[in-house]
Design a binder for these strands. Sequence first.
RNA 1: GGGCCUGUAGCUUAGUUCGGCAGAGCGACGGACUCUUAAUCCGUAGGCCAAGGGUUCAAAUCCCUUCAGGCCCGCCA
Length: 518
Amino acid sequence: MGLQAEWSVYTMSDMDRLCFDTTKIDKIQELRGRGVTVYPYTFERKDTVEEIRERFSAIGHEKSEEAVSTAGRIYIVRQHGKTIFADMGDSCGRIQLYLRKNDLGEEQFELFKQYVDAGDIIGVVGHVFRTKMGEITIWVDRFELLTKSVCPLPEKFHGLKNVETRYRQRYLDLIMNDESRETFRTRSRIIALLRQFLFEREYLEFETPTLQPIYGGANARPFTTYHNALDQKLYLRIAPELYLKRLVVGGFDKVFEIAKNFRNEDIDTNHNPEFSMVEIYEAYRDYNDMMDLTEEIFAHLAEKVCGNTTVLFAGQDLDFSRPWRRLSMEEAVREYAGIDFQAMSLEELRAFGLEHCVEGCESATTRGEYLVLFFEHFGEKQLIRPTFVYDFPVENSPLAKKHRTKEGFTERFELFIAGMEMANGFSELNDPLDQKARLELQDAKRRRGDLEAQMIDYDFINALGYGMPPTGGVGIGIDRLVMLLTGNDSIKEVLLFPQMKTIPGSNGSEPEQDGGEE
RNA sequence: GGGCCUGUAGCUUAGUUCGGCAGAGCGACGGACUCUUAAUCCGUAGGCCAAGGGUUCAAAUCCCUUCAGGCCCGCCA
């Protein structure tokens, strides 16, 4: 047993790792023999498929006066002797090509017939017309092979369905599946709209460190790495929070960052080890203001992206129109667990939790811990339409400011939609002494083996020591937001390259253990 | 970590219940065809059924182990 035996099973030759089709490689040799440049450098594309479709939407059966020049990938070729029809597509759509031996001449026509296959990328110059069957078509005057594909394309009708292949070879998914391409186009648009929304309101966008000597801003296990020259351990950030607050201390009073965060935890339908989040901080605001801002952002994006404030997700209509339901965590527990939390003693809470098999109750010791456990057990999954839950116990909110009136609570909220946590925000804790005490508690938990507890960042505490104005902050999970707005119920469907286990032998040799040495 | 499900040709899949020579469509290759569009028609090649082991006269099919993936739960922002 052992590694040796396991790896030897997976030894692969090049052709096992590659999907190259030998007949296509032969074609390349033959093309070169005929003096054809198989991988040329440019093509003067003057029109996209979309532009052509728009411009010639009213075209008749006569060829257009105006010539077009466009390029794209061949998806299907239909040969008819001295005529060929082909479907060509670019990033926005497909269009039919019509090639005739009479027009192209013997040599060009035979070149296409013999050597241009589905998957290849070509450029065409021609005129537009409508076929007898009513299809807008480019009548090709000349074409140019721009890239020869050597891997076979999946089937033209069913396309690529295999989920694992779609994730592992996303490029192929994007080539074959319009819905997938549409999802990622929308993702790009959502992020652009989000930036625009914040820029218009004069927030400044910054980039803070991804490699951090001390991780913080969330409770999660980090990825650990090492800097050789500095000879020290570094962590991939689990959140940008502590750095963004330093910027608020420094005087930037409206800031945001669209951050990739990294958390070394399990992968499932709505968790990926690296994920995107927008964090926003604004001085002189509190958590009520941040709930308002969150609502505005979601409603704005839903309307821009989906055309209205109702979106269909996992078979349910989600209404994003404002105002959203807001209930305190105690109210949520009253509603979903059916108990009056305030009226119950610690013993009664414990008994209730054990009776209902609420996870974590065995080790819970404070009222706040029970409250959170009950909320998560009874409430969280029930919150389908957008709902803010606010006022969290101080125990599990080490960076949130103590509640202005409720003893033992913080001014913190989370947003739930479709049972998913979508956003998390607070009136930021800006009392340096309180912050120090809270992080010391976290550190003690961490030393006792709580792998998700936070580290003490003394420089951050010092920053607060110089004075951070009253500040509201919120973080919004971008991937989950994209899930909602594109109707995908798995995070992998909205991540271009979701984390997958490497298939042994598929990646060539691995670097040395301590790679990176010059 | 626990449960359920899936893996058959380049792609989409039938066959697994109840063991009996692994089937199809598309694609590829060769041929016919000047308005087709999942083109059509004729012909050819291609898979040892995720990997390994076991039961059996006989295994894609039953059993075990492993690998990868999906869904759910646990854990976790």
